[in-house]
Structure formats: structure tokens, C-alpha cells
Write a protein that binds this DNA or RNA. Structure first.
Length: 420
RNA sequence: GUGGCUAUGGCUCAAUGGUAGAGCACCUGGUUGUGGCCCAGGAGGUUGUGGGUUCGAGCCCCACUAGCCACCCCA
């Protein structure tokens, strides 16, 4: 038993998983380049107030999931629980509104939420995040959704489902919530305790309830899409039109309620198979009031967050193999101290020639060095001993067919390059 | 925060309440300078932690901790 253990909900990503991560990050890079999004990186730590203000005081994230602590200066800091607030802070703070509008950005990195871990949920997890700032046209909503879909298709996912909804705006949302409260209050006695609490605290959540007793009530519950103001209704219908134009299948799911206060109008989720109970692989929406809330001028925005750990789970479940890691295909072994010095130099000569090579250290038996070459999966083992040094040559053993060739040291880079 | 299940070498797992084992992986040897396969050997454990029952606990009981899964909620 080792003395130190991982912090709850945090994981080591070991070598078997790294090819998945490399594959995923490569596909992400290709996708954002294709769509013309630019990378932005913001700090992992922010003033706690940014999230309290941005994400919303009553949200679960702020209320019970944030990693909070006091800096040595006495400032209250938070490990970022999501990307959007920090990126919007950076947008306002750096005057990015002077760049061409809309501003399309992406990022990736760790986020932290103090939740109980389970399949597809970790206290430190990694998201791929997209934001488009400064444009209210639903065509960018569609672009953002499509970017995610495009990526997932390139990753090889199948069985994807897109769900969309509108969550209204400050003009129509409160009136709808009022209607919802009235409806469920009339049936209060049939509501299970959990949903009674939701009715008090966050009525929208009842729509998402899994309580059996509540299901019959949901069928006749007022739907937000019937209570949108003209502007929101128009936005939502154009969104659907553009999605149809793109020929992306979607389902309007009036139950989608995102957990952050800043969402307005469009909200959406993409779900995938093989993820257990946490099957949302991408979730996002529009936040037209957030930048103003954070002290900027009124600026619309839309984006999504997408959990990369969940990609890995889905890829494995779907049986999608990422490309193997490009390990060195040449080892440099030696016999004796004199040869060792030549071998050290030779390994670096090969690196300089762009040939992946690995020195086999430790003065272990020659047998052990060859064994190491085999375990690495190398194609060639270069052998240097007194005989070779005298002749200015190396013995090159082909590990696939066990043939051996003497090659002049000076010719070795070219000789190998031709055969790898 | 709540519930269910679990906890034995690095990994996967054995061990009627009576001396903790195997396979894989690792190291060494079987070759004076030759890998894979095979053979032999070696190292590696205070059985998650702390209590209790018992002549005796890896095994039974309690608590704690951690992990997994689910709820809440979310990516």
C-alpha cells in the first residue's frame, strides 16, 4: 500500500488511455481549424465571485460543487467549474470586442466540481469548449451545434442524438415559470417529496424528474415553447429551419433545462451510447445576458462544453481503436564502456536525423538489452561492441526476421531511413 | 448530501475460522555478444484502517476510509 493516494474523483491517465486522448485532441484541432475557431486559454483559478455572479448563486455548481479556498492574500479563489464565465471575463478584460465580430474561440483543459464520482463523472474532468461571441443570428447556434456533430462523426461515433429546446429570455421565462408553478401547485398532493422540493427551489427541474408519480402530470404540463415571446419564438423557429437546411436530425425536448443561470433562448444536448447513466457528451446554449452581467457591453453569445473523459468511454464502448502511439523503432545497445560512449552519441545522431531511437541503459546483460528492444516493439536493434567500434561499423539486427547486417556508422541514418 | 455493492503482491483473482497462493508483469540464470517460445530461480503482502468475538480471524461482527455504480445534478 502506498502512503499517498489519488484525491477522490481524480484520475491518472495511463499509457493505455493516452492514444485515445491523442486521437481526440488531434481531431479537435482539425475541426476547430476547419471551422476557423481560435484558441484561448484562461487560468484555472479565478476570483470566486466571477462564477458566483456568472453561473448563478442558486445553481448546484456554485452552491455545492465549487472548489473554494482563500489565497494567502485573503482573496477568495475558485478552481474553475466551467469555462464560459472565465472566457467572458477575458473577453471583457482584454477588450476583445474590438476584434472582428463574431469572435469564435475554443479551449480545452481541466475543470473542477466537487461531486460524488460515478461513471463518466469526475471531480477533475476535461472539457472541449467552444464559444461564439457577438452574434445573435440562430445560424451561429446551428454552426456551433454542427461543429460538435462534425467532430463526433469524425471520431467515429454513431448512435448520436441531438436534443434542442428554448429556455426563453428574461422577457418570457419568468411568466412561463409562473405558469409551471401554478400547474404543479394544483397537483401538489400527488407530487413526490423530491419534486415538491423542486417546485420550491427550481420548478423547471420538475420537467426532468424521473419520479414515476410525476410522469402522468408531465404530459399535460405547460411547455415553454408555447409561451415564448415573439423574439424567442422567432429565434427558435429559425433555428429549427436552419437545422433542417443542414439536414441534421434533431428532437425538440422541452424537458432540457440547463443547470446554469445564464442560459437564454437556445439550449441543446448531444447524447451518445455506452456511457452509463451520464450519457450527455455535449451540452450548451446561448447566454445573451452574461457579458453584460459581467460588466461588458450587451453582447450575445453561444457555446458548449463537452466532456473528453466521456469521449474516451464512448470510443472504448463502440470498439473504436485510436492510432497507436509512434514509439521508436530502433534501439541502440552496447557491450562494454567504450562502446557505451559511442552508443550514447549514436542515439542522438539518429534523433538528429529524425529517426526514433532509444538507448538501452543500465549496463544490463546484452540479452536484457535485446529483450528491452523486443518489448518496445522495435524493428531494428543496433549493436555496438569492441569489434564494431574497431571497424567503424554497427551490427544492425532486424528484429522481425532476425537477420543481421554490418553498416558503417556514417551510413547508418540513411540506411535506417530507407528501411523504416 | 443519500443508497447499493466491493476492498488479498504492480494487475486479475484463489485460500471449509487453523502455516497467505496462482497466473500475468518485473528481475536473474539456462549463451564468451543475441529478443520472442520454453525451463529454472528471485524479488514483491503488517490481507484498506481501527476496534470486537474467538484458543486462533484474510474469512464472523462494528466503525471508519477508499473505490465502483446509482440518486441529486451534470460534461
Amino acid at each position: 500500500m502506498t502512503k499517498y493516494k489519488r484525491i477522490t474523483g481524480m484520475r491518472d491517465v495511463l499509457f493505455d488511455d493516452q492514444p485515445y486522448w491523442r486521437f481526440i485532441l488531434n481531431q479537435i484541432q482539425k475541426t476547430v481549424d476547419l471551422f476557423g475557431y481560435r484558441r484561448i486559454d484562461t487560468p484555472v483559478l479565478e476570483q470566486a465571485g466571477l462564477f458566483i455572479r456568472g453561473v448563478g448563486e442558486g445553481t448546484d455548481i456554485v452552491e455545492k460543487e465549487m472548489y473554494l479556498f482563500d489565497d494567502r492574500d485573503g482573496d477568495q479563489l475558485a478552481l474553475r467549474p466551467e469555462f464560459t464565465a472565465g472566457i467572458m471575463r477575458a473577453y471583457v478584460e482584454n477588450g476583445l470586442h474590438t476584434l472582428p465580430t463574431p469572435l469564435r474561440v475554443w479551449t480545452t483543459g481541466p475543470l473542477f466540481r466537487h461531486e460524488r464520482p460515478q461513471a463518466g463523472r469526475y471531480r477533475q474532468h476535461t472539457q472541449f469548449d467552444i464559444e461564439v461571441i457577438g452574434e445573435q443570428d440562430p445560424a451561429v447556434d446551428v454552426e456551433v451545434i454542427n461543429l460538435a456533430w462534425h467532430l463526433f462523426t469524425n471520431l467515429g461515433f454513431f448512435g448520436l442524438r441531438l436534443y434542442i429546446n428554448s429556455t426563453g429570455c428574461p422577457n418570457c421565462k419568468p411568466a412561463y415559470i409562473q405558469k409551471l408553478v401554478e400547474y404543479f401547485s394544483a397537483h401538489k398532493d400527488t407530487l413526490p417529496p423530491d419534486d415538491q422540493m423542486r417546485l420550491q427551489k427550481n420548478p423547471l427541474r420538475i420537467l426532468d424528474s424521473k419520479e414515476a408519480a410525476t410522469q402522468p402530470l408531465l404530459a399535460n404540463a405547460p411547455r415553454i415553447t408555447d409561451h415564448l415571446c415573439d423574439e424567442c419564438d422567432n429565434h427558435f423557429s429559425r433555428l429549427k429551419t436552419y437545422l433542417q437546411a443542414l439536414e441534421r436530425p434533431f428532437t425538440v425536448d422541452y424537458k432540457i433545462v440547463r443547470g446554469l443561470d445564464y442560459y437564454t433562448k437556445t439550449v441543446f444536448e448531444i447524447k451518445a451510447d455506452g456511457l452509463g447513466s451520464q450519457d450527455t457528451i455535449c451540452g450548451g446554449g446561448r447566454y445573451d445576458g452574461l457579458i453584460q452581467e459581467l460588466g461588458g457591453r450587451p453582447t450575445p453569445g453561444i457555446g458548449f462544453g463537452s466532456g473528453i473523459e466521456r469521449y474516451v468511454i464512448a470510443l472504448k464502448h463502440l470498439g473504436i481503436e485510436p492510432p497507436a502511439e509512434p514509439l521508436p523503432r530502433v534501439t541502440v545497445s552496447y557491450l562494454g564502456e567504450a562502446a557505451k560512449k559511442v552508443a550514447i552519441k549514436l542515439a542522438e545522431t539518429l534523433h538528429g536525423a529524425g529517426i526514433g531511437a532509444q538507448f538501452t541503459p543500465g549496463d544490463r546483460s546484452f540479452k536484457a538489452q535485446l529483450k528491452a528492444a523486443n518489448r518496445l516493439g522495435a524493428s531494428f536493434a543496433i549493436i555496438l561492441g569492441d569489434d564494431e567500434i574497431q571497424a567503424g561499423q554497427a551490427t544492425v539486427r532486424n528484429l522481425n526476421d532476425s537477420s543481421q547486417t554490418a553498416v558503417n556508422l556514417a551510413d547508418l541514418p540513411d540506411w535506417l531511413a530507407e528501411r523504416l
